[in-house]
Computed example of a mutant assay.
Amino acid sequence: MRRSRRKRGEAGQAPPEHAPRDWTGLEVGVDVEVQLPNRPAYLGEIDAKSPDSKIVWVISKDGSGRKMYGDWEGVSVYRLDRPRLSVYR
């Protein structure tokens, strides 16, 4: 049996459809909107982030827990002080 592997771009980079996000401006404690690819957005709070801002941990406001996201996953995280139009779950 052969395992399927996710395709990678050149030199181990993420595929272009999941270009890295810039999360350097997100501070711990900031309220955010998280938009996952092909899923409804949800509200949360930045709980922690890596020193290089490539990974963030978000605690959801709906009680579904804490989740970790990498900047290569195609997830968009927006500060709530910025106006956005979305559908929340």
Rank of each mutant, 00 (worst) to 15 (best):
A14T: 14
H18P: 00
R89K: 12
V75D: 02
V56L: 13
D31C: 05
G74E: 05
K7Q: 08
R79V: 06
A11C: 10
V30C: 09
I46G: 00
S4A: 10
R82A: 13
E45V: 12
W72E: 05
V87M: 08
W57D: 03
G12W: 02
W72S: 04
S53Q: 05
G44E: 03
R84M: 09
L85Y: 09
P20I: 09
Y69C: 11
K49P: 00
T24S: 11
S86Y: 09
E45N: 07
S4Q: 11
A14N: 10
G70P: 02
V75M: 04
L85P: 01
I59N: 04
I55C: 08
M68E: 15
Y69P: 01
A14S: 15
P83L: 08
N38R: 13
L80K: 15
S64D: 10
P51F: 05
R79D: 15
S50I: 06
D47I: 02
W23L: 02
V28T: 14
Q35G: 03
V28E: 14
W57P: 00
Y42W: 14
D81E: 15
G63P: 03
E45T: 15
G29K: 11
A14M: 06
P40Y: 06
R3P: 01
I59D: 04
V32Q: 00
T24R: 13
P16Q: 06
L36W: 03
W57H: 13
W72A: 02
S53I: 02
V75A: 01
L80F: 02
R21L: 08
D62Q: 09
R84V: 06
V56P: 00
G25K: 15
S60C: 06
N38A: 10
I59S: 10
V75F: 07
L80T: 15
P83R: 10
G74D: 05
D52N: 13
G70N: 14
R2Y: 12
R8P: 00
